[in-house]
Write a protein that binds this DNA or RNA. Sequence first.
DNA 1: AAGATTAGTTTCGAAACGAAATCAGATGTG
DNA 2: CACATCTGATTTCGTTTCGAAACTAATCTT
Lengths: 201, 201
Amino acid sequence: MDGKITSTDEIAELIVYLGRAARGGDTGSDLTAAQWTALRFFARANHVSRTPSAFASFHATTRGTASQTIKFLMLKGYLARHEAADDRRSVRFDLTDSGQEVMRDDPLRALSEAIDRLEGGLRAALRQALPSLAGELANIRDTVAFGTCGDCRHFSSGGTTSYCAYVAAELAPADLGRLCINFAASGGMKLALPGLPKEIS
Amino acid sequence: MDGKITSTDEIAELIVYLGRAARGGDTGSDLTAAQWTALRFFARANHVSRTPSAFASFHATTRGTASQTIKFLMLKGYLARHEAADDRRSVRFDLTDSGQEVMRDDPLRALSEAIDRLEGGLRAALRQALPSLAGELANIRDTVAFGTCGDCRHFSSGGTTSYCAYVAAELAPADLGRLCINFAASGGMKLALPGLPKEIS
DNA sequence: AAGATTAGTTTCGAAACGAAATCAGATGTG
DNA sequence: CACATCTGATTTCGTTTCGAAACTAATCTT
């Protein structure tokens, strides 16, 4: 195998390039790239996933580093810390009003705008291809994948209600489009079971 | 505008997520993420773009930081330094044989494999959508875009020959799929002209 | 009850980074 | 030509980020 550049490699590199180009936008705010990623994660994760460990896993870093990032956001007043009721080791972080507000300056908005200007068919293709890629990559790497409840195998829709078989409970409608650490792709992928679900707090 | 999560935002976040998830793969090699990005860049940039400045622009960092990363790769013996013939301030870095070899352990390979397993239509859509996104994003940000010669406005194909209007010279066939710092999207985008082209050395 | 796991945090050293200063060569203007 | 300006590359310095490891506490397993 020589160093030939294939079309596939070009795509892979473009994804990395876009991801990096989008992260630092200098919107004048005072958050670093890691802090933006964390704030974004806590804004978009469902309530069982808004923990330091889940964020560390999502961000492919250690829990220690994740703790530091979160601590800073808490000092800034963008995140509020809540202790879980069922497991006293666990904590959950939610965006404060001030955190919601600063999210409006998310530098990722520029990328979103670029996506909005894409031709509709291409955007639909992205909407289909990227989650699939995330699942495949997690499979190859043998790590946990992230995805939204609506795309998850544990999810089932019964008429007007939404149910998650993993936490064995009804889902809030808002959670349908949210990230979950217990995500399992609908295809034939392996589950990553770290134990079994607890009550939702 | 409240904090509602749109499908477009999901796509943007997925791109960032994939870009980060792909970067650190722990292939057992001794390169950091920044060093991998640099090595990959010098492996895939055409010969007028294999300079510290071009890499700094590509990687959205300063020339100083870029110099350090490159210096390390040179100490490792992965990059060779060549002084440009036409402009004696300028230097060019090329992969050594040893650099070519270590590229086989590129952690990005996992993402490439995932892309390879995509259904063909989706892969083609990515191949079309991502360069377009890169151009749009650069446009919004008012920065320089990167793209391959084959997608570039300066490029024209005359039968068996390939020509670049920017350097006013024939293109090596291998450069067609290579990154160029003088890239201009085919659409109606602005040019970033830092002067005018010199001879190719 | 004892050991193993898991969640979260803290500490510490290495790496990345931005800003600024330096130097050499190239370009532009009067 | 002389002078100012600009560009490409590098070095230094201080700050920030990050990963690894150590640590505490709670939970799970047997």
